[in-house]
Each structure stands twice: as structure tokens, then as C-alpha cells.
Design a protein around this nucleic acid. Structure first.
Length: 469
RNA sequence: GGUCCCAUCGUCUAGUGGCCUAGGACGUGGCCCUCUCAAGGCUAAAACACGGGUUCGACUCCCGUUGGGACCA
């Protein structure tokens, strides 16, 4: 029985791929992959004044970064005007649409009158019965909406939604300048692309009854609808720039992993028992529209940050090492194109990954592994590099100089012996050493750090501090 | 203003009439671990918007109120 699932993501290229769009894309993608169906990317660029090539590229870039691959497209509406025109002609021929000669001024005047009389402004359908064109006047095309009865949307997420047809008006489907309107074009495309499930933001629910009548006018089976609840900012209004970063690629730059963002986004409105962290495979396997909630969700950057740290933690050091160089360049730690020993870098990353929430943080911490010398934080210097500490560091320098097998294990043994001999606690040596070697008071285990930084650099940094540098 | 949607801890959510003394996660506090910082473990505080029904029994069903949101104008 299974009719193959065909879904689409249809962004308009008037901006970057944003958080809300990405989630819509993600839910469509998951639905398609779960049902082994087809996922289509369609660029809704009919608004030529606001659509740009750059944004088309940006959206595609965002989709790729999130690893949401599509099976068909990207299709572009601007290359489909002939198709829309033919669909309009068909409706006119079948007397399901008609030419309207009312001017914007007349329409506005009637609107004002209606408002003044406390009526709901709505096109009165006066051109419906017109048989002769008005010479010299441009004509728009209007769709004949049913005037009575109700339209029922059986939404997969929200359930049954009923609309009174009397609130629907004969909407314009082709403007007098020859361009088709949004609600018409969407339906034509979805018919043409044989879309079976329309999964989109619930800001479109009110458009749905109008669209249903267009499907019916073409004798086409109405697809299933699933309206996803909105994503809100902390103030419970629709997520926008003023709530912080909303562009997906901004998260890439801030050092987020695409899988972490995907995991976060999917949990906004969808759940699977108590599970929080999912692999892609699990997501595809478990995803179902039935488990999508129906209320709007507030975007919570802190939970996203936590998920990102989880993903960084679970990634292999090699994977992370491969991702980190661009961030090192941005932090000014290495030069563009500078080569690093990747095996060594992976070791350094390994020591840092469980204490880094983003790739940016990871890159910043890598500073003291890579550079020859480090800047020492003044407060740390004041607290941990007093004369008595310097004396201990001299002892440490002598001890480390004597370690030939320069591994964390051997270093640890040597330092423990030193501490015992001097009758001090390990911390008394470790903390000043940390400041001298990393420039700060927080780092991975000091023996590990010493090993990775390497004998030569460690001794040089100790010497510098001992000599008052 | 009209239409539509929504309502469980601060936030994301579990819950589909008795399993609820309302569970998990983020965040917050405490403790443990510890060379620092994390990670990890344990733990604490924290919610069913309100009012009516229906029912032996409502977080769960119905109605209303309030509050939020979206679309259209």
C-alpha cells in the first residue's frame, strides 16, 4: 500500500539558513529518511526584490554543513513561471478563476468603508460575474473560493482544525503584473512535485484552507499536513536576530558541531522518552511526527552549549584535530596554511576535549601547547610565582632535565619523588608549574601537559620564569 | 480587530483516566573524586495557569476564563 513519501523544504532566499528553517528542514529530512522517501529542496525565490544568489548559496551551505542531503533539486521557482501561467490558464478555462479589474485604489476604498462600518474587509467578488474586460485596465486573476461550508484540515501534529469558508475570500492568484502569488505557487509546486506530506512551520496554518481549495480545483489529492510549532526567543516572541545568533552558519563559526545543533533542534518539539543524546541513525530510526509536541518552544542556548560539549567529548581526538586548525588561525595561534603534526595535535586535543564546550574554546586552550612562550596571567603570577614558588620551580627544572623518557608516567614519578624529598604537597609544585607552563591556573593534568608541550619548551618556559621573565 | 493555534519545574520535555509522593535533561546550590580546571558520580530546591463540569477517580476528557503566539487586515 505504501505510497512513497515525498517531502520538501522550501526556503525563500531572503536571508541565511536560520535556526527555525533548519529545524523545518531537519524534520522533513528525518521524516523522509525514516520512511525511505524522497526529500526535495525547493528555493522559493519568486520575491525577486528580496531574493539573492548569495542567500541561495548560503542556504545550501547551511544544509550541507548540517548534513541534510536532498534527493531532488534545488528547484527554483523563478525558472517555473511558465508552469504557473499554464495552471492559471487552466483554472480560467474551467471557470474556477476569473479576471478582476478592480484597482488598488478601489480596493482600498472599499476596505476603509468596511472598516468604518465595522465589517470585516474582504473582497466582495464583484468581478466574478463580469463577462467583458474593462479596456485599458490591467487585470489580476482571482480564484473562486467556495462561499459556504467549512474546510477541515486534519493536521498530523495539531489534529482537526476547522475553518469557516465564509472567512475565505477570492484570493488573487496572478497579479496584474503577471506574477503569481505565494499561496498559489506553493500548491502548484507541491502538485507538480507530487508532495505527499507538507511539513512546515505553523505560521502557515491559516493558509492551509485556501490551499486545500486550490488542490481540489485541480482535482488533486490534498497532501497530509503537519504544522510544526514555532521556535521562540527567551521573551517568548518569535525567534529573531535580537535574540542572538539565528544563522546556522554563525554556530559553525562559534565552534559548534553540526550534529550537536541537529540534536538540539530535534529535541525542540520532539522527544523520545527520556533520551537526550541521539546518533543520526537513532534519530532516523525513532523519528515520528506523532511524538512532535504542539506547543511553541523557547530556544535555550545553554542546553545547546551543553550538548555541544557532549558531542565534543564523544568525538575522537583525530576528528576534532582535523576541525580545529581554522579556529587556530582565527585565534592567531598559527598562520594560515601552517602545518602541524596531526598526531601530536590529536594528543593535545585529547587532553582538552572533555573541558572544551566549543571548538573555539578548544583552540584557545591549544595556545599553550603550540606557542613557544606563553603570556602569564598577572593574577596567577601574583599568587603562584612568589619567590618560594620560584625556588620549587628551580628544583622542578633540575628534576625534569634529568627525565630521559619524557612521558607523563615518568614525569609523574619523578615529580612525586621530588615532592617527597622536599617535604611538600604535590599541589605546591603543580600549581606554580601550571602557571609557568600554561600561563594560567586551569589546565589538564600537569604531567600530561608537560609531556605534550615537550621537554625543550617546558624547560625554556621554566627558565624564563625562574630568571624573572 | 477577525481567524487559527498553544498552556506540566526558569527552559526543553515525559505523562495519553488510577502505575504521579508528577519522571528525565539543561541551568542553579551542596557533597564526593582531585595537582588546578573540567568531566564523572551522588544530592537539593524547582511545575500540572485559573474556574467549572464528566467520572468511583483527573496532569490526562469537555466547557469557560486568563495568558501567550501566529496569520490576515
Amino acid at each position: 500500500m505504501s505510497t512513497t513519501v515525498r517531502v520538501r523544504f522550501a526556503p525563500s532566499p531572503t536571508g541565511h539558513l536560520h535556526i527555525g528553517g533548519a529545524r523545518t528542514a531537519l524534520f522533513n529530512w528525518l521524516f523522509a529518511r525514516h520512511h525511505k522517501g524522497t526529500f526535495i529542496l525547493r528555493i522559493e525565490d519568486t520575491d525577486t526584490t528580496r531574493s539573492t544568489e548569495e542567500y541561495i548559496e548560503a542556504i545550501i551551505e547551511g544544509m550541507r554543513w548540517l548534513k541534510l542531503d536532498w534527493d531532488e533539486g534545488p528547484f527554483r521557482q523563478t525558472s517555473r513561471f511558465d508552469i504557473y501561467r499554464s495552471y492559471v490558464d487552466r483554472l480560467i478555462k474551467e471557470d474556477k478563476a476569473y479576471y478582476c479589474y478592480c484597482t488598488p485604489e478601489e480596493l482600498e476604498q472599499r476596505r476603509q468603508e468596511a472598516l468604518a462600518q465595522g465589517r470585516q474587509p474582504r473582497y466582495d467578488g464583484r468581478c466574478r460575474l463580469r463577462t467583458e474586460p474593462i479596456p485599458g485596465r490591467p487585470a489580476a486573476v482571482r480564484f473562486k473560493m467556495p462561499q459556504e461550508g467549512t474546510t477541515v484540515v486534519n493536521d498530523l501534529i495539531k489534529g482537526v482544525i476547522e475553518f469557516d469558508n465564509s472567512v475565505l475570500e477570492d484570493m488573487v492568484i496572478l497579479r496584474s503584473d503577471g506574477t503569481p502569488t505565494y499561496n498559489f505557487v506553493v500548491v502548484v509546486d507541491d502538485i507538480d512535485m507530487k508532495i505527499t506530506h507538507v511539513i512546515r512551520g505553523d505560521d502557515h496554518v491559516n493558509n492551509t484552507p485556501k490551499q486545500i481549495h486550490i488542490y481540489k480545483a485541480f482535482g488533486w489529492e490534498v497532501p497530509q499536513f503537519a504544522h510544526l510549532p514555532m521556535i521562540l526567543g527567551a521573551d517568548k516572541t518569535r525567534l529573531s536576530k535580537r535574540h542572538g545568533a539565528t544563522s546556522v552558519m554563525a554556530y559553525k563559526e562559534m565552534g559548534y558541531l553540526p550534529d550537536a545543533l541537529v540534536n538540539y533542534l530535534v529535541r525542540l518539539g520532539w522527544s523520545y522518552g527520556d533520551q537526550e543524546v541521539f546518533t543520526r541513525e537513532e534519530l532516523i530510526k525513532y523519528f515520528s511526527l506523532e511524538n512532535v509536541g504542539s506547543s511553541a518552544a523557547v530556544f535555550n542556548p545553554e542546553k545547546l552549549l551543553w550538548l555541544n560539549s557532549q558531542y565534543i567529548n564523544r568525538s575522537s581526538a583525530e576528528e576534532l584535530a582535523a576541525l580545529v586548525p581554522p579556529f587556530l588561525v582565527k585565534e592567531g595561534i598559527i598562520a594560515e596554511g601552517q602545518k602541524l603534526d596531526m598526531q601530536w595535535l590529536a594528543k593535545a586535543v585529547q587532553s582538552l576535549k572533555e573541558r572544551s564546550k566549543t571548538l573555539v574554546e578548544l583552540a584557545q586552550s591549544l595556545r599553550y601547547y603550540i606557542l613557544d612562550y606563553v603570556d602569564i596571567d598577572p593574577k596567577a603570577r601574583e599568587k603562584f610565582l612568589k619567590p618560594e614558588n620560584i625556588a620549587l620551580l628551580s628544583e622542578l627544572h633540575a628534576t625534569l632535565s634529568g627525565v630521559t623518557d619524557f612521558t607523563a608516567t615518568e614525569i609523574e614519578k619523578a615529580v612525586h619523588t621530588l615532592a617527597e624529598r622536599l617535604g611538600v604537597k604535590l599541589g605546591a609544585i603543580a600549581q606554580p608549574a601550571r602557571v609557568a607552563i600554561t600561563g594560567g591556573t586551569a589546565s589538564p593534568g600537569i604531567f600530561e601537559v608537560i609531556e605534550i608541550v615537550g621537554k625543550e619548551k617546558v624547560l625554556k618556559r621554566l627558565e624564563k620564569v625562574i630568571s624573572g621573565g
